[in-house]
Computed example of a mutant assay.
Amino acid sequence: MLKLRKISHIFKYLFGFPKSVYVNFRLLPFNQALKLPIIVSNKTKLISLNGEVNLTKVKTGIIRIGFGGTEHIDYTYTRTILKIDGIVNFKGRAKIGLGSKFIIHKEAIFSAGERFGITGDTIILCTKKISIGDNARISWQTIIMDSDHHPVLDINNNIINNPTEIVIGNGVWIGARCFILKNTNIDDGCIIAANTTITKNFSGIKHSVIGGNNAKILKTYIRWYN
C-alpha cells in the first residue's frame, strides 16, 4: 500500500511538470526557476501570474501547491486556484493543499514563515497584507481575507471599509471552518477552535485557545505539537 501511494505521488508530480515549469519561470528569477522550487499539481487552475514570489531558500520542491488534502476532498474533481498578481514571500518550506484558493491581488503582500501548511480546501484572499509566522497550520475550509471584498461607501462616496492587515504569529494552529478577517492579530502558539470567526486583536495573548461565537480566550498556557 505504501509503495502504491509513492507511485501515485510520482505520477501526480509528473502530470503537473509542464505547469510547474511555467509557474516557476513566470514568478521567479531565471536562476531560481531552473531549480523548480515550486511544484504545482496538474489539478491547479492558473488564473493570473503577474506578480512575484520571493524565496529565502531555493530548493527543488520546497513549495508545493495543490497536493495532499483530507478524506472529504475528491482528488478527481477538485481543483486548486492560483492567482498571484502581488508579492508572495516564503521563508522556507510551504504546502498549499488540494482545493485551496490562493488569491493575491495586485499591490498586496502575503508572507509565510518556515513550514507553512494548509491542509486543503481553504481560501486565502489577500488585498493588502497578510503575514503568517513559522510553523503555522491551517485546517480545511478556512477563509483568511484582509478585506470585505466589496467596498461600502458613505453618503460622500468615501470608502468606509478599507482592507486592514492580518498578522498571525509563530506556531498558530487554525482549526477547520474558521474565518480570519481583516484587522486580526493572533499571537504565537495559539489554537483557533473550529468554526471560529476572528475580527479583532489577540496580540499579547500567547499559547491560548481562542474560540466561541464572539471569539474569546477559552484556555491559557497550552502547547500543541506540529
Rank of each mutant, 00 (worst) to 15 (best):
I65L: 12
S48H: 15
S111W: 11
E107M: 14
F110C: 08
D74H: 11
N89F: 07
H72N: 03
L49V: 09
D74A: 03
G86R: 04
T44D: 10
I104A: 06
I103Q: 06
I81A: 02
I62R: 03
K83S: 12
T80C: 04
K59G: 05
E107V: 13
E107C: 14
I103P: 01
I104T: 02
E52T: 14
E71T: 10
I104D: 01
G69F: 03
I87Y: 05
A108D: 11
E71A: 12
D74G: 06
I96M: 09
L98H: 05
K95L: 14
G97W: 01
F90W: 08
R79S: 04
T78M: 02
G61E: 09
D85Q: 14
G66I: 01
L46M: 11
I73S: 01
S41P: 09
V88L: 00
H72E: 03
H72C: 04
H105C: 11
T70A: 07
G97S: 06
D85R: 09
T76K: 12
Y77C: 02
G92V: 01
I103C: 07
I109G: 00
S100G: 01
Y75W: 06
I63R: 08
Y75P: 04
A94D: 05
I104C: 00
F67D: 08
K91E: 10
N54H: 14
G97T: 04
F67Q: 11
I87Q: 12
I47D: 15
E107K: 15
K59V: 11
T70V: 14
R64E: 09
T78S: 01
Y75C: 01
E107T: 15
D74E: 15
G69K: 07
V58L: 07
R64N: 13
I87W: 02
N54Y: 15
R64H: 11
L55E: 13
I63D: 02
N50A: 15
K101M: 15
N50W: 07
S48E: 13
K59Q: 12
G61C: 10
H105S: 13
K45Q: 13
H105V: 08
G51H: 08
D74I: 08
I103H: 14
T60R: 12
K83R: 13
N54V: 14
F90N: 00
A94S: 14
K95G: 10
E52M: 13
G68F: 07
E52P: 01
G97P: 02
K91V: 04
G92P: 01
K106D: 12
F102C: 09
I104N: 06
R64W: 10
I73G: 03
I73L: 11
G68E: 08
I109E: 07
V58D: 05
L98A: 02
G92D: 01
R64D: 04
E52L: 12
I63S: 02
N50K: 13
D85N: 12
V88R: 06
F90G: 03
I65T: 07
F67A: 08
E71C: 05
A108P: 05
S100D: 00
S100Q: 02
N89W: 06
H105L: 15
I63A: 08
L49W: 03
R93L: 05
G86A: 02
T44I: 10
L46V: 13
F102L: 09
